[in-house]
Structures are given as C-alpha cells and as structure tokens.
Write a protein that binds this DNA or RNA. Structure first.
Lengths: 152, 152
DNA sequence: TTGCTCCTCACGTCACGTGAGGTGGC
DNA sequence: TTGCTCCTCACGTCACGTGAGGTGGC
C-alpha cells in the first residue's frame, strides 16, 4: 500500500530462473559473500530485488563467458564495492575528489573486462575460421564421393 | 635411424605445455577414454605424437570456449570415432556408400559446433556492447566531476 | 652419480548436485 | 487443508590439485 517504494520482490526460485542457475548456486554464492545476506520473510525465505537479478546475471556472465573463478569474482566484487557505494547514501558524504577516484577505479575494471571479452571473441573467431575451413574440405570430399557413386 | 617414420614424440609434460593444461588433466582424460592409452616407453612413460597434440588442443578449446562438460566431450569423441576411422586402415575396406555416410556425420558435427561458436560470439558481442555503453556513461560522470573540480 | 621428469596411488578442493526432514504462504 | 516452495544440514560428484614414495633416461 505504499505508493513510492513499490518494488517487485523475488524468492530464491524466481531469481534462480531469471539468472539461469539453481537455488543451490545462489545459497553458495551468498555463503562466499558474492550476493550479500539481504532481507528475509518471517519464515526465513530470502527476498531479492530487481538489482539483485541484474547483479547475479552479471556474475554468471563473467563466470560462463569469461571463465572467471568464484575467487576472482569475489575479488572483483570487493573492488566494485566502491562503485556500488557511489549510488548509496555513502556518496552524499563524499568529496568530489573521492567520487572521481571511485569512478576512475570503476572505469579501469570495465576496461579490463572489455579486454577479456575481445580476447575471447578473437579466439572464437579463429575457432570459427578453422571449423569453416574444415567444413569446406569435407564438402569437397563428399562431392567427390557422390560423383563416383552417381557415376554419370 | 628409420628414415620414413621419423615423427616427433612428446612426453606428458611436453604435451601438457603445448595444450595449456597439467599432466594430471591428461591422465584424467585418458582415464575417461578421451585420449586413448597409446605407446609407453620401457619405463612406462607415456609417449604422444603431433596428432595427439592437435586432438588435446581441440578438446581444451571445446571445453573452455564452448563450455562443454567432459561427458559431452566423450559423447562427441565417440561420434567422431567414425570420422577418425576415415583416415585409418578401416577406410580401405569400406564402400563408397559407407564413406559418404561417415562424411555426412562429420559434417553434421562440425556444423553443430559452428552454431555453438556463433551463439557464443553473439552473447559476447552483446556483453561488449553493454560494457561499452557503461563505460560511456562513466566517462560522462567523470567529465562532470572534473569540471566541477577544475571549476573555471 | 645427480637432477629432472615421469609413474601410481590416494586424499584434498572447488563449485555445486541431491536427498532428508521440517516449516511457511512476496 | 493441500500442494508448492522454501529452509538448513550434510553427504555426493565432477574435474581436477597436490603430495607421498618410487623408478627411468623420446
């Protein structure tokens, strides 16, 4: 019945589905400090917000697409803590110098990730080239056989 | 001192280095049937050929770049067995119809892999886009702060 | 002979999977 | 009330990591 803080909440199953993982994975990530112990219902059920969804999806992407270990994700999360703080109360009591420092750190992190993404794309492109070439020679071999079999 | 079968051999450490894995991984893959128990020296040391290097590198790429599990790699290896047979003695006693069937199967496998590679590239491209956009807005924020600090 | 690399167990670890037994209702 | 989803242990599994103790020399 509050009109302002009308935000959607998910239970662990909903979050899991939206991120493409299981509930177990979410509990494990919370245990490692990757997700932070948030609100609970009286029955002790975990509740998540839309920003939790985005955060988990990001973690899964870094894990699956870039192959980062959970240890590396924890490191990264610690480093990003500063960036998240920018959007919190914390930022109100910070000086512009401090804010600039935080933004610089966040930029470095994003740039590093972009490099990793490009490196992966390179390797995938090379893989695609090799597969395409292989397919070409296999099609040749096939045509040769078909000609001999069709034997006009 | 043989002049024809003059092929380079690797021990497990050499193979490991060339594929970017550890010796333990190679022994484990052999245990799973992914690598096949080949020759040994009198001292029981494993010996590998250049084609073993290529094969292992391929497996590692499928694992790292496409995220296949070892179970899936075993399946794929079983399916590819036929393709490998094309290059062996086996092929000499096969009919052209059988050869064509084998090539068709091999083509299907390669096409499937190429699809997976493209799907991954798509996801990576989207990730890159989002990171680039994020970097853009962070640079804006930075410029804003710098202006306030520099305050002409 | 002395290193270095290899060998085979075999237990440890990381990132979860999978019940068992029980309670709550974003 | 009846399902369904959630909860907390806690043991199992996959893909290796890491010694221990020993032998070989692509």
């Amino acid at each position: 019945l509050s009109t302002v803080t009308e935000e959607r909440r998910y239970r662990i199953g909903g979050l899991a589905e939206r991120a493409g993982v299981t509930a177990r994975t979410i509990r494990y990530y919370e245990e490692l400090g990757l997700l932070g112990k948030g609100e609970r219902t009286k029955g002790a059920q975990r509740l998540y917000s839309e920003s939790d969804v985005a955060r988990l999806q990001e973690l899964i992407r870094l894990r699956d697409l870039l192959g980062l270990t959970l240890d590396e994700l924890v490191e990264l999360a610690d480093a990003e803590e500063a960036r998240a703080a920018l959007r919190g109360q914390w930022a109100d009591s910070a000086t512009d110098d401090e804010r600039a420092e935080i933004v610089d750190a966040a930029i470095s992190i994003a740039e590093r990730q972009l490099e990793l993404v490009h490196a992966r794309k390179q390797r995938l492109a090379q893989f695609a080239d090799e597969l395409t070439e292989k397919l070409g020679s296999m099609h040749e071999r096939k045509a040769e056989l078909d000609e001999r079999r069709g034997g006009t």
